[in-house]
């Protein structure tokens, strides 16, 4: 059967009609805004008057003239550096525990998974109360062990550890991904290993971890990206005295995206906030690229023999 020119034209038109909602979205919600954002980062603009072109000044200011930029960068790095590895470890441990044929295992899975799909604002308010220095759950529990708990969210030293601790409660998503990967490991591998007399810790390091390394890598990338964008809990939990005071005490929870939000939507410095967004994009991109490069050393992809 020959395909005539009009058939081909019809096929093209049909194709574009089907993807047209996305195509319009791509132009107006992604591509256009990206270009516009680059332009904005070179302006001073409060939305009330026309944008004023100032070239690279925003980037110059944030690099050399804005201590809060570095504060927010430091806070975010601190948060990422602890919450990502701890979260990875915990989600792996939970997945390994759940990957057993035990009675009632689905109940445990539900308990670990549930907190990760709830509402961040409600969860933040709950944890504000848990972290209450005098009457909160955590310090009451610590007192039971004879430990005088810190001020948590009201302390410059403990506010970030508090939010990191809270983030561990939400590792359920990563846990499920790990669990699925664990369940995909063929039983024969373990049988062969136990015939060779491999001890359980050797099985962990030589079979289990390599086999689920793609899942671990996926979690790592998603966690890094997500943690760099930590926002809601900081906004909800750290406003001591109404709007504008978020990120306290003494800016110890002023994370990067929170700072960006305050610049854009409380101070209406749209140009400056755009330049912050680009810095964040570059940092996330760099981290992701580095992880992809490093992954060649530790991520093991099984290639399907049939595809060779």
């Amino acid at each position: 059967m020959k395909i005539s020119i009009s058939d081909r034209a019809k096929r093209n038109i049909e194709g574009y009609l089907f993807i047209s909602p996305w195509l319009i979205g791509f132009v107006f919600l992604s591509a256009g805004p990206i270009v516009f954002s680059l332009f904005m980062s070179g302006t001073r603009w409060s939305l009330l008057s026309a944008p004023q072109w100032i070239g690279m000044e925003n980037y110059h200011t944030l690099l050399f003239d804005d201590p809060l930029f570095y504060t927010s960068l430091w806070n975010t790095a601190y948060y990422v550096f602890f919450s990502v590895p701890l979260g990875m470890l915990l989600s792996l441990l939970l997945a390994i525990l759940l990957n057993q044929r035990l009675r009632g295992i689905s109940i445990f899975r539900t308990i670990f998974f549930l907190p990760s799909v709830t509402n961040m604002v409600a969860v933040s308010i709950l944890w504000m109360w848990i972290f209450n220095p005098e009457f909160g759950l955590l310090n009451r529990a610590l007192e039971w062990f004879g430990i005088a708990g810190p001020l948590w969210l009201q302390s410059e030293t403990w506010s970030k550890p508090a939010l990191i601790l809270m983030s561990l409660w939400g590792v359920g998503g990563g846990m499920i991904i790990n669990l699925a990967a664990l369940q995909g490991i063929p039983e024969e591998l373990y049988e062969a290993a136990s015939l060779d007399g491999a001890k359980s810790w050797r099985r962990l390091f030589h079979i289990t971890l390599p086999m689920i390394s793609p899942a671990l890598f996926f979690n790592l990338i998603m966690n890094i990206i997500g943690s760099f964008q930590v926002f809601t809990q900081a906004l909800v939990m750290t406003a001591s005295s109404g709007q504008g005071s978020e990120g306290g005490p003494n800016n110890s929870t002023l994370f990067f995206v929170l700072y960006l939000y305050k610049k854009a939507f409380q101070q209406f410095k749209m140009g400056y906030a755009s330049s912050l967004a680009w810095v964040l994009f570059i940092i996330i991109l760099l981290f992701t690229l580095i992880q992809f490069l490093l992954s060649q050393r530790w991520v093991y992809y099984q290639t399907d023999e049939r595809l060779k």
Binding site: R11, N12, E14, G15, Y16, I19, W22, L23, F26, F28, L29, S30, G32, P33, I34, F36, S37, M40, L47, I225, Q229, V257, L260, A264, F265, M270, A273, S274, L276, A277, W278, L280, F281, I284, T288
Partner: peptide, 29 residues
């Protein structure tokens, strides 16, 4: 259709873009 592969790659690429880049221009729009 023509350009399908390129457009699909673009679609995937936008998944990697952090929302912070587009949120300010979108707000302005």
């Amino acid at each position: 259709f023509k350009g399908r592969k390129v457009l699909f790659s673009l679609c995937i690429a936008t998944m990697l873009l952090p929302g912070q880049i587009t949120m300010i221009p979108l707000y302005v729009m």
